[in-house]
Design a binder for these strands. Sequence first.
DNA 1: GACCAGGCACATC
DNA 2: GATGTGCATGGT
Length: 222
Amino acid sequence: MKPSIAARNLRDMYRRLLRAYGLQDWWPARTPTEIVVGAILTQNTAWTNVQRAIANLRQARALSWKALRDLSEAELAELIRPSGTYRVKAARLLAFVATLGHEHGGSLESLLDGDLEAARRRLLAIHGVGRETADAILLYAANRPTFVVDAYTKRILRRHHMIEAGADYESVRELFQISLPADAALFNEYHALLVAVAKKHCRSRAACDGCPLAALPHDASL
DNA sequence: GACCAGGCACATC
DNA sequence: GATGTGCATGGT
């Protein structure tokens, strides 16, 4: 697909979703610390379970870098147990805290500021931070214009013939980056709208009925 | 009871 | 570079 066509399709899709669902206000005004913690805890996990874990951390007054650093891995694991894969995630949270302390003087701003792609590479170098988590942290905690690609995003774009089967993360992200203005509020909203439409209309073939994207060329079997 | 959810690291080919 | 596997909970 020619880049100009893909760009037009992406913008058309956004207009349809926004008209159908309105502003989603995803991951609004919370502390950057809580957003980073949530981004790691939500890896392959339903958001309701992440909220339980975050509630535990808040209850334990552990939602700050200093408090997290002072917890043992076992203590942290116990607090975040409801979010699943808790031993893995405890190690990842502590890896993030350690990197922040050792290489950025404990300043999240210094980690996330500066050239966007450079900041993204710094995040990706942290154990436990992959592409989606890095982009979520940059977008939601620092308001940087990087698009968060998830399984829903790929599925919808695939169904609408906008990407190839098996398209990798970076190529899908790049499609958004080059097709849309670099606007964090837009990227935030677009991603939230994709999740909303997928949850409502992509669970089964029959669920396609009433989908705001049904008028666009698509293949519901994908 | 299977399947999924706002993935990632690691091993293997 | 692509594919397979372990991690582990709570909801449907």
